[in-house]
């Protein structure tokens, strides 16, 4: 029998609100890995971003978490995790990955070895560990292919963080039918170099249920049934979450990562 590596998929984002598309990303990615036969996807984690992210129209994390929890009630393998949203500050995605990888190791009862080399991919490749019988779990960042594109936006991502994500964890990108995300990889030297850690998953049904469109429809009083779970629709109605007013929240605000990274660059320039 082949040893399958246990794999946890982590999706970061606003989930404002969670839509059926978000859940589809997980289903597609899991099918992809199971067909490839190297991994056993054991868990999916949805990590809604912190309120301090400063995105326009971002409803409070409390609501976003609860909606995700409701949406995932019927899933036996995907869950929502509050850690990222509970932090005092906005956390870089790589920090969220580090946190969850730590948790993952704990739950797999693997004693952390001393030293720096505690990362799944390096471990698997490490000759010193080849004799080890333990299969180390892996954690990969699950995202839409549009995230690859955002890597190119100046100041949005820290270059070192991108590197850490693709070297120590790995990326799973679900691409829209008809689009070709490999172009974003070939445009970046870094992504190119680590493309063996970037898994491209093709979507076989176009799925463009963007949360922005959902909020827009809700404000107009249009139906979003069958695009997001019924339980989420009831919750939104009960708490009146998406209105003209809520959409203006953080208007004109600079996103937290842009603030932080550009501040750092200014500092360096000075």
């Amino acid at each position: 029998m082949k040893h399958l590596t246990p794999l946890t998929l982590l999706a970061c984002g606003s989930f404002n609100p969670i839509t059926n598309m978000h859940m589809r990303l997980f289903e597609l990615a899991r099918d992809h890995f199971h067909q490839a036969g190297k991994y056993q996807v054991t868990e999916g984690i949805i990590s809604p971003v912190n309120d301090k992210y400063g995105k326009q129209g971002l409803a409070s994390a409390k609501h976003r978490l609860e909606m995700a929890r409701l949406a995932l009630e019927t899933s036996e393998w995907i869950r929502v995790d509050p850690w990222e949203s509970e932090q005092e500050q906005w956390s870089e995605t790589v920090k969220v990955l580090r946190h969850h990888y730590k948790e993952l190791l704990k739950s797999h009862c693997i004693r952390r070895l001393p030293g720096k080399n505690n990362w799944p991919i390096e471990k698997a490749a490490g000759a010193s560990l080849a004799s080890s019988l333990t299969v180390f779990p892996e954690l990969k960042l699950l995202c839409g292919a549009d995230v690859l594109k955002t890597f190119q936006i100046p100041n949005l991502w820290n270059e070192e963080h991108i590197q850490e994500i693709v070297t120590k964890f790995g990326l799973v990108c679900v691409s829209r039918a008809g689009s070709d995300p490999s172009q974003y990889i070939s445009e970046s030297e870094l992504l190119c170099r680590y493309q063996h850690n970037i898994h491209l998953v093709k979507e076989w049904i176009p799925n463009e249920i963007s949360a922005t469109n959902i909020r827009c429809a809700l404000r107009k009083g249009q139906s979003v049934k069958y695009l997001i779970p019924d339980s989420v629709i009831s919750y939104i109605k009960e708490y009146n979450i998406y209105m003209e007013e809520s959409e203006r929240k953080n208007e004109g605000n600079l996103l937290q990562p842009l603030k932080q990274n550009s501040a750092m660059i200014n500092l360096l320039n000075e």
Binding site: N20, R24, E27, L28, D31, S75, W204, I205
Partner: peptide, 19 residues
């Protein structure tokens, strides 16, 4: 979400959840 694609996915044991 064409029903043809749904049937194809079901034959291939792919997930059609949320569709």
């Amino acid at each position: 979400i064409s029903a043809t694609k749904i049937r194809r996915a079901l034959r291939r044991r792919q997930s059609v959840r949320y569709l």
